[in-house]
Design a protein around this nucleic acid. Structure first.
Lengths: 158, 158
DNA sequence: TGACAATACGTGTTATCACATCTATCTTAC
DNA sequence: GTAAGATAGATGTGATAACACGTATTGTCA
């Protein structure tokens, strides 16, 4: 058995090191998952990045969050939150307000419309995750989560 | 311990399902790894995508490969291989030649210059992988690779 | 043999990413 | 109280991604 992954990407030689195979496996698995996620979100007219912002802002509630705070909470680094919020504001998913006490700060909040979109997504997303991931079973999922956390230790976010 | 990942992305609530945590873990781990890989490759004047093409074309040797064949072998789906190759040809990393028997086919090959770049990357990349991944140890790496393969089963590439 | 589908690429276009730089506002130290 | 630095965000720009559509060539079959 020369490796499932090597066959997936039509690679004739097996991987030379376990480290290389792990990193390529990770990249490929994440890419497949991400692509499927993009399709799911596209059905609701948003991107995964936008979904993440909405989820973060729902968590923040009426207090809202600033640009940098949103950036810190994103799953993957997004270097241009300003224009991401611009686009979301333009379609009515979020609203922004400049602070009164500190006029540098702009607080973003999710709108009623944004909340409605999130609510519509919640159940399909739950089913999507079940369908794509739950076949591993709880123990394997726990192991996977822990191994990925292991892998990240020592990484800096930026 | 409410979860390492939740703290990383400053999420106040723990994850509601194991499936969600697994997918977010996967996305975040891959994003961190990818970002570091981009930086590594940027030091050699190419992107990770271009590195992949070079690696694929080195594997193909003098026979070369067509646009679609390259696309199939990429780790992540790239919908515009033509212009990716355009850019790489412009900087002399690959060369292309239209087929004689089937004039629809364009075969891409790695140039001597492209091979030189790959050769310069090989050792640093090996060290990079060692540094970022090998602390898991062979058994955990094997488990991770297998779990990721498990996760991908049932996925379609496109 | 000539229409029709399939194949292999190429091109147009828009949106987004990613980096660097800029502006406005606040804080701090003198 | 004012200049220097820190902070929060905005903007300019070029490269890339993603999707749709267009073109050239080949295979197939009535």
């Amino acid at each position: 058995m020369p490796g499932q992954l090597a066959a997936e990407i039509k690679q004739t030689k097996p991987f030379t090191t376990l480290e290389e195979e792990a990193v390529v496996s990770l990249a490929r698995t994440a890419a497949l998952q991400d692509h499927a996620g993009q399709e799911l979100m596209a059905g609701f007219g948003i991107t995964q990045t936008q979904y993440n912002v909405l989820r973060i802002l729902r968590g923040a509630g009426t207090a809202g969050l600033g640009r940098n705070q949103i950036g810190e909470r994103m799953i993957n680094r997004v270097p241009d939150v300003t224009r991401l919020l611009d686009r979301m504001e333009a379609v009515g998913l979020v609203e922004r307000e400049r602070g009164d006490d500190d006029r540098r700060c702009v607080t973003a909040r999710i709108t009623r419309e944004g909340l409605k979109v999130l609510t519509r997504i919640d159940q399909p997303l739950h089913e999507f995750l079940k369908a794509r991931v739950s076949h591993l079973g709880p123990e394997k999922l726990r192991t996977l989560i822990d191994l990925l956390a292991d892998l990240r230790t020592g990484y800096s976010v930026d």
